[in-house]
Design a protein around this nucleic acid. Sequence first.
DNA 1: GCAAATTAATCAATCGTTTGATTAATTTTG
DNA 2: CAAAATTAATCAAACGATTGATTAATTTGC
Lengths: 209, 209
Amino acid sequence: MKTEKVDKRQAILEAAEKLFCETGYEGTSTRQISKESGANMAMINYYFGSKEGVFVEIMNERIASFASQLKIINEDKISALEKLHKVIEGYVNRILNNTAFHKMMHRELSLTQRPEMYDKIKDAMGQNMQMIDRIITGGIEDGSFKKDVDVRMIIATIMGTISNVVIAPNKILSCSNFDLNNPKDKKMIKERAITHLQDLTTVYLTTKR
Amino acid sequence: MKTEKVDKRQAILEAAEKLFCETGYEGTSTRQISKESGANMAMINYYFGSKEGVFVEIMNERIASFASQLKIINEDKISALEKLHKVIEGYVNRILNNTAFHKMMHRELSLTQRPEMYDKIKDAMGQNMQMIDRIITGGIEDGSFKKDVDVRMIIATIMGTISNVVIAPNKILSCSNFDLNNPKDKKMIKERAITHLQDLTTVYLTTKR
DNA sequence: GCAAATTAATCAATCGTTTGATTAATTTTG
DNA sequence: CAAAATTAATCAAACGATTGATTAATTTGC
């Protein structure tokens, strides 16, 4: 019977990710991780060397799967606008499927304790930005987008809008209260965000004055 | 000789705000605050009761001055678009003049330790959102804005873009490296953000299809 | 039976807070 | 006005609790 074989290593990772997201890295103790995961405290150091080792493992895992997704969109033989819409859809889905990690990532970006972690996140974000930059710049060069725009600010708008949806308190985004953990609500928010950003970029980038 | 009379209470507040921003609330020890401010450790509890008391004081101060600014814009006898542009300008200036606090606020929004603090920030944000909501809705009703838009998502775009400018790593926002602490760079980024958001909202909201 | 996995117990270090004493400034009193 | 009493501000030292980490012993699975 394999179903009951609890992998303590994995249990620690999952418990730690949950706690790190809820109360932050320094706000989470190894004893909490031990209790939440059902593993003995020493197991944390046995498997990961240290508390920070657990954190690094979690972030690396996520960033790796983060980077592996959507990257060859720019090579498709489709218009710049279609590329941009694909990127928006992919980005919204990725982030709203990993809201907990996204919050953790942004928190880490605003701290100065772990520079290596900061650099790792910066690099991952930078790659995504460069991809979007190339798409928009390409659209400007081939004449499908208007040229008097601030490309970096448009990227800030796309990324910032999505982050804001994830981070802003649930109660005030929509009139009624909803929950991003509720799959039905999440699906609705995803669609609204995608529709809005695609509409916004289309109007803004293709309206010649 | 009065010139050397340093207000320890104020010194603690300033040191604590700096440290809380850099390394987070749980990541900052009272001993660090003591050392950075030059005040004895006991002074923290003497003036503020506890470490959390310092934090609450800082946040309340900021939120109060946050709310006191720009609120009667909506009562001006100007067009909805001009109102919106004024709000954008005010919002960008406010946030980029207080980047450290803004990061701290967002970090607190992603944690679950201090629900009272969370609610306080939520309320402050909610008021700003309602103001923008009324302006845009008003513009739609008087026919100056097009009607098939997602108002709440537009608000997420405005707020999210500004947050992203503050939070995103400096090195990747612009091609060359710049520093938001450098007044000259800050001024430039402010103007770019204001210009971009005003242009974006104008094109998006007033382009009838 | 042996290596890997797991445990309880323990470690030094650091945490936020409190203490009792001291100084300096202010107020009260005669 | 000056001596006495009171207050506010500051300090070094210590408090008990908790932190992340380690030990040495035990259990598990092949």
